[in-house]
Amino acid sequence: MAKKTTKPQIAALAALLTLSIGALEAAANELRPSGVCTANFAFNSLLPMKVDAQFLQDMQAYSGAKIIRHIRAGEAYTMDYRDDRLYVFSDKENFYTGHKCG
């Protein structure tokens, strides 16, 4: 007969899992040099979002980039690559359409 799992055991396992995930995130952040952009972060863009100063600040924090550049539809931008820069793209009405490092 299988041993029944108790609530304290489940709570202990949940706590251990939470600590493990935190340790993995910390390790991943240590592998990336400070200021280097990463576009590999979870971001929900199902709802239309206006690009404003707070939005850009949040995107910069998520990406870890030192530089953030807002590009509106139709605007030209340089194609030189910088590993510390995040481009945030919007349409002509200033709604978020995408992002990339570079």
Rank of each mutant, 00 (worst) to 15 (best):
V88G: 00
P33D: 05
D83C: 08
A73M: 05
G102W: 14
F89R: 07
F55P: 06
T6H: 01
L17N: 10
I67S: 10
T18Y: 12
A11G: 02
H99L: 02
K100H: 13
F89M: 08
F55G: 01
S34A: 14
Q54G: 04
Y81A: 06
L46G: 15
R82I: 03
I10L: 14
N40T: 03
R69M: 13
I68R: 05
N94G: 06
Q54T: 08
N44P: 09
S90E: 04
E25I: 09
K7Y: 11
A42K: 13
Y96K: 02
A76T: 07
T78F: 07
L56I: 03
F43V: 12
S63P: 00
A61N: 15
Y81V: 14
M1T: 12
N29W: 11
V51A: 01
K3Q: 07
L24I: 07
L46R: 15
R69C: 15
G64L: 07
L13D: 12
T6A: 12
F43S: 02
M1D: 10
E25N: 12
D80G: 02
E30S: 15
R85L: 13
E75N: 05
Y77R: 05
E30Y: 09
K4C: 03
A14I: 12
T38G: 08
A53E: 12
V88Q: 00
L17W: 14
Y87W: 14
G74A: 04
T78P: 15
A42V: 14
D80Q: 10
A61Q: 06
A14C: 10
R32N: 10
Y87T: 02
I10W: 11
I71A: 01
N29D: 11
F43G: 05
M49H: 03
I71E: 02
E30T: 12
K66I: 08
T6N: 03
D91M: 08
A61D: 12
N94K: 06
A39P: 00
R82F: 07
A65T: 06
Q54M: 08
T5R: 10
R32K: 10
N40C: 11
S34C: 04
R72Q: 12
T97F: 06
T38K: 14
N29V: 10
S90H: 02
A65R: 04
E25K: 08
F95A: 00
A39D: 14
P33M: 10
A65S: 09
K100Q: 14
L13F: 09
A12E: 08
I68S: 10
K92Y: 01
L31R: 15
L24D: 06
F95E: 00
R85I: 03
A14D: 00
P33G: 15
T97V: 06
Y96M: 08
T18A: 15
C101S: 02
M79C: 01
N44Y: 09
A14H: 03
T97S: 01
F89T: 00
G22D: 06
I71Y: 00
R69K: 09
A65Q: 07
A42L: 08
R32S: 13
D83Y: 03
I68C: 04
P48I: 05
I71K: 00
Y77W: 10
V88W: 01
V88Y: 04
F89P: 02
A65Y: 09
